[in-house]
Each structure stands twice: as C-alpha cells, then as structure tokens.
C-alpha cells in the first residue's frame, strides 16, 4: 500500500462544460486518489506549472471544445520543459479515434471518449502509475 496517487484534473481552454471533469474527479477521489482540481479556464502554461508544483503522478484534461489537437501537445511540451516529462498526461472529451491515435503516437497517454466508464479511467491510472512506481523504491 503506497502513498496516494495524485492527479491534477483540469478544464483546458475557454470551454466551461465541466460535468465530465467533475464526475471523473469524484470517481478518482472515491478510488482513494488525491485530486487537485483546477477548475475551468486553464491555459496549458497554468496546467503544466500546477502539475509541477503539486508533484502529481498524472494530469487529466477534459476537452469538449475541439481544441484538443492544440492543447494536449502544448501541455505535453510545457511539462517536458519544466522537468515533468515523467508525469502521465491523459484525458478525454469529444475526440475522434483518429485524433486519439495521433495524440497517443506523440506520447500522450490513453484518452477516453464519450461513454467511457469512470472505472476504466480509474483502472488505467492505477495500472499506469503502479507500473511507473514499481521502478522506484518507496
């Protein structure tokens, strides 16, 4: 039983539809994670910087505005710049399979589309972070 997984949940860009972000934040909390919720209207710079300060294991972005092909790569780039290249970047929203594949290929983690189960999201983060932590002493 290791320390709690810390996840930053953010709504990137101008989009204020936060239903999904909140439902996921609750699900992660209920799975025993520490969720840092930034609220709506976060720039990639704010998200990456908050992720670094909070020393999170993962960043989950919710995007329904269609700006995902801009925002995911930008957050990834800034995380790398700030020494947070080991932070898992994941998320979800209205993202087509094609875009998901392209983002995955660029190093972003798994993305979840409409209808995804929060259980799958929890399980993915637990497995992924568990695997990453296995390589380090407690």
């Amino acid at each position: 039983m290791g320390r709690a997984i810390r996840v930053l949940v953010a709504k990137a860009g101008l989009d204020g539809h936060d239903r999904g972000a909140k439902v996921v934040a609750r699900a992660l909390r209920d799975a025993g994670m520490e969720v840092i919720y930034t609220g709506i209207r976060q720039t990639p710079e704010m998200i990456a910087e908050a992720a670094v300060q909070e020393d999170v294991d993962a960043v989950g972005l919710s995007l329904l505005s269609g700006a995902h092909m801009h925002i995911f790569p930008e957050v990834q780039r800034l995380l790398n710049d700030k020494g947070g290249d080991d932070i898992l970047l994941t998320g979800g929203g209205t993202i087509s399979d094609e875009d998901m594949a392209e983002l995955r290929a660029s190093g972003v983690g798994q993305l979840f589309g409409p209808g995804a189960s929060t259980r799958d999201i929890v399980e993915y983060i637990q497995t992924e972070i568990g695997g990453r932590r296995a390589g380090e002493p407690s």
């Binding site: 709690a4 909390r29 799975a31 969720v35 840092i36 919720y37 908050a50």
Partner: peptide, 9 residues
C-alpha cells in the same frame, strides 16, 4: 476512501 479533492487552486 482515503481520497481527497483539493480545490483551492
């Protein structure tokens, strides 16, 4: 649950 939502940011 041992989890928490930290919303002060």
């Amino acid at each position: 649950t041992g989890g928490a939502v930290l919303g002060d940011r």
